[in-house]
Design a protein around this nucleic acid. Sequence first.
DNA 1: GTCTATATGGCGATAGAC
DNA 2: GTCTATCGCCATATAGAC
Lengths: 208, 208
Amino acid sequence: MDKFIPTTEERILEAAKKVFHSKGFDGARMQEIADEAGVNKSLVHYYFRNKDNLFNAVFEDAFGKLLAKLNEIFLSDLPIATKIETFVTYYITFLSRNSYLPLFILNCLSEKPELIKTILTRKQLSPDHMLARIREQVRSELHLDIDPFHIYINILSLSIFPVLAKPLLMSIFGLSNEQLAVFYEERKTIVPEFILNALKSYENNPSK
Amino acid sequence: MDKFIPTTEERILEAAKKVFHSKGFDGARMQEIADEAGVNKSLVHYYFRNKDNLFNAVFEDAFGKLLAKLNEIFLSDLPIATKIETFVTYYITFLSRNSYLPLFILNCLSEKPELIKTILTRKQLSPDHMLARIREQVRSELHLDIDPFHIYINILSLSIFPVLAKPLLMSIFGLSNEQLAVFYEERKTIVPEFILNALKSYENNPSK
DNA sequence: GTCTATATGGCGATAGAC
DNA sequence: GTCTATCGCCATATAGAC
Protein backbone atom coordinates (compact mmCIF):
# COMPACT_ATOMS: atom_id res chain seq x y z
CA MET A 1 0.00 0.00 0.00
CA ASP A 2 1.68 3.13 -1.19
CA LYS A 3 1.28 5.96 1.23
CA PHE A 4 0.02 9.32 -0.05
CA ILE A 5 2.90 11.75 0.10
CA PRO A 6 1.67 15.33 -0.07
CA THR A 7 3.59 17.86 -2.10
CA THR A 8 4.87 21.01 -0.42
CA GLU A 9 2.02 22.96 -1.97
CA GLU A 10 -0.53 20.56 -0.51
CA ARG A 11 1.10 20.70 2.90
CA ILE A 12 0.85 24.50 2.81
CA LEU A 13 -2.80 24.42 1.77
CA GLU A 14 -3.68 22.01 4.56
CA ALA A 15 -1.88 24.18 7.08
CA ALA A 16 -3.64 27.26 5.72
CA LYS A 17 -7.02 25.59 6.17
CA LYS A 18 -6.28 24.85 9.78
CA VAL A 19 -5.09 28.36 10.58
CA PHE A 20 -7.66 30.34 8.56
CA HIS A 21 -10.56 28.20 9.80
CA SER A 22 -9.74 28.88 13.41
CA LYS A 23 -8.40 32.44 13.25
CA GLY A 24 -10.06 34.02 10.23
CA PHE A 25 -8.32 36.13 7.62
CA ASP A 26 -7.18 38.99 9.85
CA GLY A 27 -6.19 36.77 12.74
CA ALA A 28 -4.14 34.35 10.66
CA ARG A 29 -0.37 34.88 10.27
CA MET A 30 1.62 33.74 7.28
CA GLN A 31 4.36 32.71 9.70
CA GLU A 32 1.97 30.49 11.62
CA ILE A 33 0.82 28.81 8.41
CA ALA A 34 4.43 28.20 7.43
CA ASP A 35 5.24 26.74 10.85
CA GLU A 36 2.15 24.52 10.74
CA ALA A 37 3.23 23.23 7.33
CA GLY A 38 6.84 22.86 8.45
CA VAL A 39 8.19 25.06 5.69
CA ASN A 40 9.90 28.40 5.36
CA LYS A 41 7.68 31.45 5.29
CA SER A 42 8.94 32.49 1.86
CA LEU A 43 7.73 29.23 0.38
CA VAL A 44 4.17 30.16 1.20
CA HIS A 45 4.56 33.25 -0.94
CA TYR A 46 6.38 31.28 -3.60
CA TYR A 47 3.39 28.96 -4.07
CA PHE A 48 0.49 31.33 -3.47
CA ARG A 49 1.97 34.79 -4.15
CA ASN A 50 0.04 36.51 -1.37
CA LYS A 51 -2.31 36.06 1.56
CA ASP A 52 -5.47 36.81 -0.43
CA ASN A 53 -4.80 34.09 -2.97
CA LEU A 54 -4.14 31.54 -0.28
CA PHE A 55 -7.28 32.52 1.57
CA ASN A 56 -9.44 32.25 -1.54
CA ALA A 57 -8.12 28.75 -2.19
CA VAL A 58 -9.04 27.75 1.37
CA PHE A 59 -12.50 29.28 1.14
CA GLU A 60 -13.34 27.72 -2.21
CA ASP A 61 -12.34 24.33 -0.93
CA ALA A 62 -14.47 24.62 2.20
CA PHE A 63 -17.58 26.19 0.78
CA GLY A 64 -17.45 24.33 -2.52
CA LYS A 65 -17.64 20.96 -0.79
CA LEU A 66 -20.61 21.97 1.34
CA LEU A 67 -22.53 23.51 -1.55
CA ALA A 68 -21.93 20.53 -3.77
CA LYS A 69 -23.23 18.14 -1.14
CA LEU A 70 -26.28 20.33 -0.56
CA ASN A 71 -27.10 20.23 -4.26
CA GLU A 72 -26.38 16.55 -4.60
CA ILE A 73 -28.82 15.65 -1.85
CA PHE A 74 -31.68 17.96 -2.78
CA LEU A 75 -31.47 17.28 -6.53
CA SER A 76 -31.37 13.51 -6.07
CA ASP A 77 -34.31 11.16 -6.65
CA LEU A 78 -34.93 10.39 -2.99
CA PRO A 79 -38.35 11.13 -1.47
CA ILE A 80 -38.43 14.46 0.35
CA ALA A 81 -38.56 12.91 3.82
CA THR A 82 -35.44 10.88 3.10
CA LYS A 83 -33.70 13.93 1.70
CA ILE A 84 -34.30 15.80 4.91
CA GLU A 85 -32.98 12.93 7.01
CA THR A 86 -29.95 12.49 4.77
CA PHE A 87 -29.16 16.17 4.75
CA VAL A 88 -29.49 16.65 8.50
CA THR A 89 -27.37 13.60 9.29
CA TYR A 90 -24.69 14.47 6.78
CA TYR A 91 -24.40 18.12 7.75
CA ILE A 92 -24.39 17.53 11.48
CA THR A 93 -21.77 14.81 11.09
CA PHE A 94 -19.53 16.76 8.76
CA LEU A 95 -19.83 20.13 10.48
CA SER A 96 -19.38 18.83 14.00
CA ARG A 97 -16.15 17.20 12.81
CA ASN A 98 -15.10 20.51 11.27
CA SER A 99 -16.72 22.82 13.72
CA TYR A 100 -14.75 25.90 12.71
CA LEU A 101 -16.10 25.68 9.19
CA PRO A 102 -19.56 27.28 9.45
CA LEU A 103 -18.34 30.34 11.34
CA PHE A 104 -15.44 30.70 8.94
CA ILE A 105 -17.76 30.61 5.94
CA LEU A 106 -20.24 33.10 7.36
CA ASN A 107 -17.46 35.51 8.24
CA CYS A 108 -16.02 35.25 4.80
CA LEU A 109 -19.39 35.81 3.13
CA SER A 110 -20.12 38.83 5.25
CA GLU A 111 -16.77 40.38 4.34
CA LYS A 112 -16.44 39.38 0.71
CA PRO A 113 -19.87 38.26 -0.57
CA GLU A 114 -18.69 38.46 -4.17
CA LEU A 115 -16.60 35.30 -3.72
CA ILE A 116 -19.70 33.17 -3.87
CA LYS A 117 -20.57 34.02 -7.48
CA THR A 118 -17.28 32.54 -8.65
CA ILE A 119 -17.94 29.29 -6.86
CA LEU A 120 -21.56 28.97 -8.01
CA THR A 121 -20.64 29.41 -11.66
CA ARG A 122 -17.45 27.36 -11.49
CA LYS A 123 -19.26 24.43 -9.91
CA GLN A 124 -22.37 25.01 -12.01
CA LEU A 125 -24.71 25.13 -9.03
CA SER A 126 -28.15 26.70 -9.27
CA PRO A 127 -29.98 27.42 -6.00
CA ASP A 128 -33.18 28.27 -7.89
CA HIS A 129 -33.20 24.91 -9.54
CA MET A 130 -32.88 23.24 -6.17
CA LEU A 131 -35.71 25.27 -4.65
CA ALA A 132 -37.98 24.42 -7.57
CA ARG A 133 -37.25 20.73 -7.03
CA ILE A 134 -38.19 21.02 -3.36
CA ARG A 135 -41.42 22.84 -4.13
CA GLU A 136 -42.36 20.14 -6.60
CA GLN A 137 -41.77 17.37 -4.07
CA VAL A 138 -43.50 19.17 -1.22
CA ARG A 139 -46.54 19.44 -3.45
CA SER A 140 -46.58 15.93 -4.91
CA GLU A 141 -45.50 13.98 -1.83
CA LEU A 142 -46.79 16.02 1.10
CA HIS A 143 -49.74 17.57 -0.76
CA LEU A 144 -48.84 21.04 0.48
CA ASP A 145 -48.97 24.05 -1.75
CA ILE A 146 -46.66 26.30 0.24
CA ASP A 147 -43.56 28.33 -0.41
CA PRO A 148 -40.70 25.94 0.30
CA PHE A 149 -38.23 28.67 1.08
CA HIS A 150 -39.02 28.94 4.79
CA ILE A 151 -38.99 25.17 5.15
CA TYR A 152 -35.65 25.04 3.45
CA ILE A 153 -34.21 27.72 5.73
CA ASN A 154 -35.66 25.92 8.74
CA ILE A 155 -33.84 22.74 7.75
CA LEU A 156 -30.58 24.63 7.39
CA SER A 157 -31.11 26.51 10.66
CA LEU A 158 -31.80 23.40 12.71
CA SER A 159 -28.79 21.58 11.25
CA ILE A 160 -26.19 24.29 11.15
CA PHE A 161 -26.87 26.64 14.07
CA PRO A 162 -26.24 24.11 16.84
CA VAL A 163 -22.77 23.48 15.44
CA LEU A 164 -22.16 27.16 14.93
CA ALA A 165 -23.15 27.78 18.53
CA LYS A 166 -20.80 25.14 19.92
CA PRO A 167 -18.74 27.65 21.93
CA LEU A 168 -21.98 29.10 23.28
CA LEU A 169 -23.26 25.67 24.34
CA MET A 170 -19.97 24.95 26.04
CA SER A 171 -19.58 28.22 27.87
CA ILE A 172 -23.21 29.00 28.78
CA PHE A 173 -24.54 25.52 29.48
CA GLY A 174 -21.17 24.08 30.41
CA LEU A 175 -21.46 21.10 28.08
CA SER A 176 -18.34 18.94 27.79
CA ASN A 177 -17.08 17.54 24.50
CA GLU A 178 -18.61 14.17 25.33
CA GLN A 179 -21.99 15.72 26.12
CA LEU A 180 -21.82 17.66 22.88
CA ALA A 181 -21.16 14.48 20.90
CA VAL A 182 -24.26 12.90 22.45
CA PHE A 183 -26.24 16.06 21.77
CA TYR A 184 -25.32 16.07 18.08
CA GLU A 185 -26.04 12.37 17.80
CA GLU A 186 -29.52 12.89 19.24
CA ARG A 187 -30.21 15.69 16.83
CA LYS A 188 -29.72 13.42 13.84
CA THR A 189 -33.04 11.78 14.72
CA ILE A 190 -34.78 14.57 16.61
CA VAL A 191 -34.43 17.23 13.93
CA PRO A 192 -35.92 15.32 10.98
CA GLU A 193 -38.72 14.15 13.28
CA PHE A 194 -39.34 17.73 14.40
CA ILE A 195 -39.49 19.02 10.83
CA LEU A 196 -41.73 16.26 9.50
CA ASN A 197 -44.04 16.64 12.49
CA ALA A 198 -44.39 20.32 11.81
CA LEU A 199 -45.10 19.69 8.13
CA LYS A 200 -47.65 17.00 8.92
CA SER A 201 -49.69 19.52 10.86
CA TYR A 202 -49.92 21.76 7.82
CA GLU A 203 -51.40 18.80 6.01
CA ASN A 204 -54.25 18.50 8.50
CA ASN A 205 -54.80 22.22 8.56
CA PRO A 206 -53.89 23.68 5.18
CA SER A 207 -54.37 27.30 6.12
CA LYS A 208 -51.74 28.33 3.58
CA MET B 1 -37.10 68.84 24.81
CA ASP B 2 -33.51 68.70 25.88
CA LYS B 3 -31.42 66.77 23.42
CA PHE B 4 -29.15 64.00 24.70
CA ILE B 5 -25.58 65.12 24.27
CA PRO B 6 -23.17 62.20 24.41
CA THR B 7 -19.89 62.59 26.23
CA THR B 8 -16.66 61.91 24.37
CA GLU B 9 -16.39 58.54 26.07
CA GLU B 10 -19.87 57.59 24.88
CA ARG B 11 -19.11 58.70 21.36
CA ILE B 12 -16.02 56.50 21.35
CA LEU B 13 -17.93 53.51 22.68
CA GLU B 14 -20.62 53.91 20.02
CA ALA B 15 -17.99 54.16 17.31
CA ALA B 16 -16.22 51.11 18.70
CA LYS B 17 -19.45 49.12 18.56
CA LYS B 18 -19.93 49.97 14.92
CA VAL B 19 -16.38 49.05 13.94
CA PHE B 20 -15.94 45.94 16.10
CA HIS B 21 -19.36 44.57 15.14
CA SER B 22 -18.59 44.71 11.45
CA LYS B 23 -14.86 43.94 11.42
CA GLY B 24 -14.21 41.85 14.50
CA PHE B 25 -11.33 42.31 16.92
CA ASP B 26 -8.45 41.66 14.53
CA GLY B 27 -10.02 43.54 11.64
CA ALA B 28 -10.82 46.67 13.63
CA ARG B 29 -8.36 49.57 13.73
CA MET B 30 -8.07 52.01 16.61
CA GLN B 31 -7.64 54.75 14.02
CA GLU B 32 -10.91 53.83 12.34
CA ILE B 33 -12.73 53.89 15.65
CA ALA B 34 -11.29 57.33 16.38
CA ASP B 35 -12.32 58.61 12.94
CA GLU B 36 -15.80 57.18 13.34
CA ALA B 37 -16.11 58.95 16.70
CA GLY B 38 -14.61 62.13 15.32
CA VAL B 39 -11.84 62.26 17.91
CA ASN B 40 -8.09 61.93 18.01
CA LYS B 41 -6.67 58.43 18.21
CA SER B 42 -4.92 59.15 21.50
CA LEU B 43 -8.23 59.91 23.13
CA VAL B 44 -9.38 56.39 22.55
CA HIS B 45 -6.38 55.17 24.56
CA TYR B 46 -6.94 57.86 27.13
CA TYR B 47 -10.46 56.61 27.89
CA PHE B 48 -10.03 52.86 27.45
CA ARG B 49 -6.27 52.35 27.89
CA ASN B 50 -6.03 49.64 25.22
CA LYS B 51 -7.82 47.75 22.50
CA ASP B 52 -8.74 44.78 24.69
CA ASN B 53 -10.52 46.91 27.26
CA LEU B 54 -12.50 48.69 24.60
CA PHE B 55 -13.44 45.42 22.97
CA ASN B 56 -14.61 43.89 26.22
CA ALA B 57 -16.83 46.88 26.88
CA VAL B 58 -18.39 46.47 23.44
CA PHE B 59 -18.91 42.76 23.88
CA GLU B 60 -20.45 43.02 27.30
CA ASP B 61 -22.88 45.62 26.07
CA ALA B 62 -23.96 43.51 23.09
CA PHE B 63 -24.19 40.11 24.68
CA GLY B 64 -25.48 41.33 28.02
CA LYS B 65 -28.53 42.91 26.43
CA LEU B 66 -29.40 39.77 24.48
CA LEU B 67 -28.91 37.45 27.44
CA ALA B 68 -30.98 39.63 29.72
CA LYS B 69 -33.87 39.68 27.26
CA LEU B 70 -33.66 35.93 26.82
CA ASN B 71 -33.93 35.44 30.58
CA GLU B 72 -36.62 38.01 31.00
CA ILE B 73 -38.88 36.32 28.46
CA PHE B 74 -38.37 32.73 29.51
CA LEU B 75 -38.58 33.40 33.26
CA SER B 76 -41.75 35.48 32.93
CA ASP B 77 -45.24 34.27 33.81
CA LEU B 78 -46.48 34.00 30.24
CA PRO B 79 -47.77 30.67 28.93
CA ILE B 80 -45.11 28.75 27.01
CA ALA B 81 -46.72 29.32 23.61
CA THR B 82 -46.75 33.06 24.19
CA LYS B 83 -43.15 32.97 25.35
CA ILE B 84 -42.11 31.34 22.12
CA GLU B 85 -43.99 33.90 20.04
CA THR B 86 -42.60 36.78 22.07
CA PHE B 87 -39.07 35.49 21.90
CA VAL B 88 -39.11 34.81 18.16
CA THR B 89 -40.63 38.18 17.35
CA TYR B 90 -38.28 40.10 19.62
CA TYR B 91 -35.12 38.36 18.51
CA ILE B 92 -35.88 38.54 14.79
CA THR B 93 -36.75 42.22 15.11
CA PHE B 94 -33.76 43.16 17.20
CA LEU B 95 -31.19 41.05 15.39
CA SER B 96 -32.30 42.00 11.90
CA ARG B 97 -31.89 45.63 12.90
CA ASN B 98 -28.42 44.82 14.26
CA SER B 99 -27.49 42.13 11.84
CA TYR B 100 -23.78 42.18 12.61
CA LEU B 101 -24.42 41.26 16.23
CA PRO B 102 -24.92 37.49 16.13
CA LEU B 103 -21.81 36.83 14.04
CA PHE B 104 -19.82 39.19 16.23
CA ILE B 105 -20.91 37.39 19.38
CA LEU B 106 -20.21 33.91 18.04
CA ASN B 107 -16.76 34.96 16.89
CA CYS B 108 -16.00 36.45 20.23
CA LEU B 109 -17.18 33.37 22.10
CA SER B 110 -15.13 31.05 19.94
CA GLU B 111 -12.01 33.13 20.53
CA LYS B 112 -12.42 34.07 24.17
CA PRO B 113 -15.09 31.82 25.73
CA GLU B 114 -14.07 32.86 29.22
CA LEU B 115 -15.66 36.29 28.75
CA ILE B 116 -19.10 34.82 29.20
CA LYS B 117 -18.59 33.78 32.81
CA THR B 118 -18.03 37.38 33.82
CA ILE B 119 -21.25 38.47 32.19
CA LEU B 120 -23.35 35.63 33.60
CA THR B 121 -22.25 36.33 37.16
CA ARG B 122 -22.30 40.10 36.85
CA LYS B 123 -25.83 40.07 35.47
CA GLN B 124 -26.86 37.22 37.78
CA LEU B 125 -28.18 35.06 34.98
CA SER B 126 -28.66 31.33 35.40
CA PRO B 127 -29.25 29.26 32.26
CA ASP B 128 -30.06 26.17 34.32
CA HIS B 129 -32.82 28.00 36.10
CA MET B 130 -34.29 29.03 32.76
CA LEU B 131 -34.18 25.50 31.37
CA ALA B 132 -35.90 24.14 34.48
CA ARG B 133 -38.66 26.69 34.04
CA ILE B 134 -39.17 25.62 30.43
CA ARG B 135 -39.29 21.93 31.34
CA GLU B 136 -41.89 22.67 33.98
CA GLN B 137 -44.10 24.55 31.52
CA VAL B 138 -43.69 22.03 28.74
CA ARG B 139 -44.91 19.39 31.16
CA SER B 140 -47.80 21.26 32.75
CA GLU B 141 -49.10 23.10 29.68
CA LEU B 142 -48.26 20.83 26.78
CA HIS B 143 -48.36 17.58 28.77
CA LEU B 144 -45.06 16.44 27.35
CA ASP B 145 -42.41 14.80 29.45
CA ILE B 146 -39.43 15.48 27.22
CA ASP B 147 -36.02 17.03 27.57
CA PRO B 148 -36.58 20.72 26.78
CA PHE B 149 -33.02 21.31 25.70
CA HIS B 150 -33.47 20.35 22.07
CA ILE B 151 -36.66 22.37 21.85
CA TYR B 152 -34.89 25.34 23.31
CA ILE B 153 -32.02 25.04 20.83
CA ASN B 154 -34.53 24.65 18.01
CA ILE B 155 -36.19 27.91 18.98
CA LEU B 156 -32.84 29.69 19.04
CA SER B 157 -31.76 28.11 15.75
CA LEU B 158 -34.90 29.11 13.87
CA SER B 159 -34.76 32.67 15.20
CA ILE B 160 -31.06 33.43 15.01
CA PHE B 161 -29.65 31.49 12.06
CA PRO B 162 -31.65 33.27 9.34
CA VAL B 163 -30.24 36.59 10.52
CA LEU B 164 -26.75 35.16 10.83
CA ALA B 165 -27.03 33.87 7.29
CA LYS B 166 -28.12 37.20 5.84
CA PRO B 167 -25.05 37.54 3.60
CA LEU B 168 -25.64 33.98 2.43
CA LEU B 169 -29.28 34.68 1.59
CA MET B 170 -28.28 37.78 -0.30
CA SER B 171 -25.43 36.28 -2.29
CA ILE B 172 -26.76 32.78 -2.96
CA PHE B 173 -30.44 33.48 -3.44
CA GLY B 174 -29.97 37.06 -4.53
CA LEU B 175 -32.47 38.49 -2.08
CA SER B 176 -32.63 42.28 -1.92
CA ASN B 177 -32.91 44.21 1.31
CA GLU B 178 -36.64 44.67 0.73
CA GLN B 179 -37.16 40.97 0.13
CA LEU B 180 -35.20 40.20 3.27
CA ALA B 181 -37.41 42.53 5.30
CA VAL B 182 -40.50 40.69 4.05
CA PHE B 183 -38.82 37.36 4.73
CA TYR B 184 -38.04 38.26 8.34
CA GLU B 185 -41.55 39.63 8.82
CA GLU B 186 -43.06 36.37 7.60
CA ARG B 187 -40.86 34.38 9.94
CA LYS B 188 -42.33 36.11 12.97
CA THR B 189 -45.54 34.14 12.42
CA ILE B 190 -44.23 31.11 10.54
CA VAL B 191 -41.59 30.10 13.08
CA PRO B 192 -43.80 29.98 16.20
CA GLU B 193 -46.43 28.13 14.15
CA PHE B 194 -43.80 25.68 12.95
CA ILE B 195 -42.54 25.01 16.45
CA LEU B 196 -45.96 24.62 18.04
CA ASN B 197 -47.09 22.34 15.22
CA ALA B 198 -44.09 20.12 15.78
CA LEU B 199 -44.74 19.99 19.52
CA LYS B 200 -48.42 19.23 19.02
CA SER B 201 -47.49 16.08 17.12
CA TYR B 202 -45.51 14.82 20.08
CA GLU B 203 -48.68 15.20 22.10
CA ASN B 204 -50.60 12.83 19.80
CA ASN B 205 -47.73 10.43 19.66
CA PRO B 206 -45.76 10.62 22.92
CA SER B 207 -42.97 8.26 21.91
CA LYS B 208 -40.61 9.99 24.26
C1' DG C 1 12.60 24.92 -4.93
C1' DT C 2 14.32 26.46 -0.69
C1' DC C 3 16.75 29.39 2.16
C1' DT C 4 18.49 34.28 4.55
C1' DA C 5 18.09 38.93 4.72
C1' DT C 6 15.72 42.93 4.23
C1' DA C 7 12.49 46.33 2.43
C1' DT C 8 8.19 48.60 3.50
C1' DG C 9 4.35 49.84 5.77
C1' DG C 10 0.96 49.76 9.39
C1' DC C 11 -0.54 49.24 14.01
C1' DG C 12 -1.00 49.78 19.12
C1' DA C 13 0.68 52.39 22.52
C1' DT C 14 3.08 56.21 24.99
C1' DA C 15 5.44 60.79 25.97
C1' DG C 16 4.81 65.24 26.52
C1' DA C 17 3.22 70.05 25.07
C1' DC C 18 -0.86 72.85 25.65
C1' DG D 1 -8.99 66.50 28.15
C1' DT D 2 -7.05 66.99 23.79
C1' DC D 3 -3.48 67.36 20.64
C1' DT D 4 1.29 66.13 17.87
C1' DA D 5 5.06 63.35 17.43
C1' DT D 6 7.17 59.21 17.76
C1' DC D 7 8.67 54.69 19.51
C1' DG D 8 8.80 49.77 18.92
C1' DC D 9 7.02 45.96 17.04
C1' DC D 10 5.28 42.84 13.84
C1' DA D 11 3.26 41.51 9.40
C1' DT D 12 3.32 40.99 4.40
C1' DA D 13 6.06 40.80 0.73
C1' DT D 14 10.31 40.72 -2.15
C1' DA D 15 15.41 40.29 -3.53
C1' DG D 16 18.78 37.43 -4.23
C1' DA D 17 22.18 33.61 -2.84
C1' DC D 18 22.38 28.63 -3.12
